[in-house]
Structures are given as structure tokens and as C-alpha cells.
């Protein structure tokens, strides 16, 4: 079992490193603030538009919960997707690579922190939804909300790692990370139903775990149990597995490609 335990140690060390990394630049309080402010503002912004466009409080609730889930964008999608690119930028990729630990374990460890942060940011945003925007949480099913948020963070983390893998090779991974983060706003039914999108876009939307996450969260806040939400939850698990495997494969592919072309330290 040393293979597994060695790996776990690397993953843990990388996770701790990324915690330190975050908190030397900004204080923990500022970090929490930062995580929450954009989400609060985008909730407020779309809440206003929803109100101005329709005057329908139900639609406003719809938008607020959607944006609460989208809060995972900056904390997980963006930060995970930009990890390899950042390491290259700081110039630590070479020395990390020289260490005997698998690069992927290190990446995974660093990602875990962001995945945890994503979980927290969605939870905090839901609290805002209730207290600032008056979304009724009376019938909320706490267990399903917890399950859904956890699955959201994990499955979204998986797809973000695929995007991040490209950063091993491309110098422009920050751009990719950015586009992908904001794409969720349009594609995933955050602010308007997915059915408003053109047909081809709807197909893409169903492959994005966030789409199912948003749908499941709305259900869970409305009182649905885990069994009621079997469809979106199973979809998230399925997509989560596909993306986890996919991330290992794409990571290996781009790792090999970068080694061949000597691009591990190019940015």
C-alpha cells in the first residue's frame, strides 16, 4: 500500500501548499470576502434584471439560486483550470517536475483545495440567497442540498482539471480558463432556462455538470429529496466519473506532449 500512501502524502502536501500560497498573498478574511463578493454582486445584478424584465418574484428566486451555484465558477472552475498555467508562470513547474512525485498527484492536491473552496462558496451564497434576497428556504431539504453541492464541487472540479491539463501545453491557458468559467453563465440555466438556447447549445449544456447542479439545487431548495433528484444527481455522478477519467487521460497526453516539445516551462 505504500504506492497509495505515498501518493496521498503528495496530494496532501500539495493541498497544504496551495492553502499557504493563497494566504500569503491575501489574508484569510479577505479571501473569504473575495470569494463571496463577486457572487453576491452577480446575484444582485441578475436579480435586478429579472425583476426589471418581468417583475416576477419567482423568476427572481430562480435567478438567485442559479447564481448561488454559479459562485463555484471563480472558486473552483477558474482556479483549478489555471493551476498548471500558474505554476508555469511562477516558474516552479520545472522543479515540481523534477521531483519523483507524479505531476498529476500534485495537480490533484492543489485542486482539492479549490474544490473545497467551491463547496464553501456555494453554501455561503445560499445563505445570502435566503437572508439578502429573501428566497424562501422553508421547505428546503438540507440533506439533498448538501449532497448536491458536494457533487457539484467534485464534478465541476473534474471538468476544470481537463481544462487545466491543456495549460501544461498552451501558454494561453488563463484565457481558456476564463472563457470556460463564464460560459457556465450562458449555458447552464443559471439565469434563464436551458430550453431558451438553440438546440445545439442545449446538447452541450447537458454535458456540463453545472447544468445539472443548478437544476438539482433548485429542486433541493424547493424540498425535493435525494430520490426525487435521482436524474440530475446520477447525471452529475456519471459526468463526474467521465471527467475524472478524462482528466487523467488528457493530463497524461499533454504532459507527454509538453515533455516532447519542451514546453513545461514555456508561458
Amino acid at each position: 500500500m505504500t504506492f497509495v500512501s505515498d501518493r496521498m502524502r503528495v496530494i496532501k502536501a500539495s493541498c497544504v501548499l496551495s492553502v499557504h500560497d493563497t494566504f500569503t498573498v491575501i489574508r484569510p478574511a479577505v479571501w473569504v470576502f473575495l470569494m463571496v463578493v463577486p457572487s453576491l454582486f452577480s446575484m444582485f445584478f441578475f436579480y435586478m434584471i429579472a425583476g426589471y424584465a418581468t417583475g416576477d418574484p419567482d423568476y427572481q428566486d430562480f435567478v438567485v439560486i442559479g447564481n448561488a451555484v454559479q459562485a463555484i465558477g471563480m472558486t473552483t472552475i477558474y482556479s483549478v483550470a489555471s493551476i498548471p498555467g500558474d505554476q508555469k508562470h511562477i516558474g516552479t513547474m520545472g522543479s515540481i517536475y523534477m521531483s519523483p512525485s507524479g505531476l498529476f498527484s500534485i495537480f490533484l492536491g492543489m485542486s482539492l483545495f479549490s474544490i473545497l473552496a467551491g463547496f464553501i462558496s456555494v453554501a455561503v451564497s445560499l445563505v445570502f440567497a435566503a437572508f439578502v434576497f429573501g428566497v424562501s428556504m422553508a421547505s428546503m431539504n438540507v440533506i439533498s442540498v448538501a449532497v448536491v453541492i458536494l457533487l457539484t464541487a467534485i464534478s465541476v472540479g473534474g471538468i476544470s482539471m481537463i481544462i487545466g491539463s491543456v495549460g501544461l501545453y498552451l501558454r494561453t491557458s488563463a484565457i481558456l480558463a476564463n472563457v470556460f468559467t463564464y460560459l457556465g453563465l450562458i449555458l447552464c440555466g443559471v439565469n434563464f432556462p436551458v430550453t431558451d438556447l438553440p438546440g445545439w447549445a442545449q446538447k452541450i449544456a447537458h454535458c456540463h455538470p453545472l447544468t445539472h447542479a443548478v437544476e438539482a439545487t433548485r429542486g433541493a431548495v424547493g424540498g425535493s429529496t435525494v430520490t426525487d433528484l435521482a436524474d440530475p444527481i446520477l447525471m452529475m455522478i456519471l459526468l463526474g466519473i467521465i471527467f475524472a477519467v478524462g482528466s487523467v487521460l488528457t493530463f497524461r497526453f499533454f504532459e507527454k506532449l509538453s515533455r516532447k516539445k519542451g514546453r513545461l516551462d514555456v508561458f
Binding site: S42, F45, F46, I49, A50, A53, T54, V63, Y182, L183, L185, I186, V190, N191, F192, P193, D196
Partner: peptide, 13 residues
Amino acid sequence: MFTVVALYMYSGA
């Protein structure tokens, strides 16, 4: 993205 989303919301309404 924000603008496109806002336009979707207005058109949906």
C-alpha cells in the same frame, strides 16, 4: 457574457 445573458433574459420576458 453578462450582456448576452441580460439580453436572453429580456428576450425570454
